[in-house]
């Protein structure tokens, strides 16, 4: 395997691509997280039409490949007169994608808080929003942390699709380098390694959090 042509400049280019990957991941996580929170709360709303609309939204997004969603956003928005750079289209598509998945994950966590907690709070005369805010959500958030961190890995990996609409994140950076020096094996191994170094720590952290949750880490009682 000849290294021919691959030099330090190329490594810097890959690293800058990786930086954009992180940037897009954060946009997707924060935006998708906010929307996902809304989705989760709507999903448990006592107002039936709102619940059903949210179920429809989630089923729709979860039943469509992200790539198709991305194309729809990219072409769809240009129809309405916005000429979009790849970053914006990818951001919007990812935010929608993440909101559906995180919304479902968080809904599951809210529902896994024991019904008896709802009852106890109800019997203390707390209103529904007080019950959610003071009793249920704090417990749900604790349960939700490991799967949310685990999903962040999916987000980082999914940003790779932004390359397809021209956004220069890590994969696109690799493709561009490949176009000039044609060393696909070396380049994509490096790209994979960079993704691995971003995702693996998150995976490990998620597993650690899950173990912590199972065994509990409260302050030990003082004698």
């Amino acid at each position: 395997m000849v290294l021919g042509g691959f030099n330090v400049e190329h490594i810097y280019f890959l690293l800058s691509g990786a930086l954009w990957t992180i940037c897009l991941s954060l946009i997707a996580f924060v935006g998708g997280g906010m929307l996902g929170g809304v989705v989760a709360l709507c999903r448990i709303s006592p107002f039936k039409p709102l619940r059903w609309a949210t179920v429809g939204y989630v089923q729709l997004i979860q039943g469509t490949p992200l790539l198709v969603l991305l194309f729809l956003t990219y072409f769809g928005l240009s129809i309405f007169g916005f000429s979009l750079p790849g970053l914006v289209a990818a951001s919007i598509a990812l935010i929608i994608y993440v909101s559906a998945y995180l919304g479902e994950i968080w809904r599951g966590c809210i529902e896994s808080v024991a019904k008896t907690q709802w009852e106890a709070a109800e019997c203390l005369a707390l209103s529904r929003s007080q019950r959610l805010r003071l009793v249920i959500l704090p417990q749900a958030m604790r349960i939700a942390t490991p799967p949310t961190v685990g999903f962040m890995v999916q987000i980082v990996k999914n940003t790779s699709l932004a390359s397809i609409v021209g956004f220069v994140e890590l994969v696109r950076a690799g493709q561009l380098i490949n176009n000039s020096i044609f060393q696909p094996f070396l380049i994509y191994v490096l790209v994979a390694a960079l993704y691995f170094s971003m995702c693996y720590p998150l995976s490990v952290w998620s597993r650690k959090l899950e173990l912590k949750l199972q065994y509990g880490t409260r302050p030990q009682p003082s004698a």
Partner: peptide, 17 residues
């Protein structure tokens, strides 16, 4: 009603957090 009536359950249902 719930401010006038207090109820204690078999499984205590304290808020763990």
């Amino acid at each position: 009603l719930r401010t006038d009536v207090g109820i204690v359950f078999q499984s205590y249902n304290l808020f763990p957090h």
